[in-house]
């Protein structure tokens, strides 16, 4: 696969490490979250056949973490953003 890095342009996915679903960015608020919230955050992931937002770490590059929106059935990538620009809604 080729990931179109927002800063560096198209890069081979072999330079990246997959970190999992982008929901990992939505860490529960430690002040208000319930035990269930923490359980869901730690253990539950969607496994969609289709669009999936996920984190890719550019370990062999500039060390940016990217949010890649990828179709799991075709590997088509429709969006790439820098994770530190903000958590997904």
């Amino acid at each position: 696969m080729i990931i179109n890095h927002p800063l560096l342009g198209p890069r081979d996915s072999a330079e990246f490490v997959y970190l999992g679903a982008a929901e990992l960015m939505n860490r529960p608020d430690p002040e208000t979250a319930s035990a269930d919230d923490w359980h869901d955050y730690a253990y539950l992931r969607d496994n969609p056949a289709g669009t999936h937002r996920e984190l890719w770490f550019h370990e062999g590059g500039d060390r940016s973490i990217l949010i890649v929106t990828r179709d799991t059935t075709t590997h088509e990538i429709s969006a790439v953003e820098l994770a530190r620009r903000g958590a997904p809604k």
């Binding site: 970190l19 770490f57 973490i65």
Partner: peptide, 17 residues
Amino acid sequence: AAKVYQHMEFVRQCLMP
């Protein structure tokens, strides 16, 4: 070493941007 660094970057960029 590599895994911890990766974890630290995750916390830095994704949880404490």
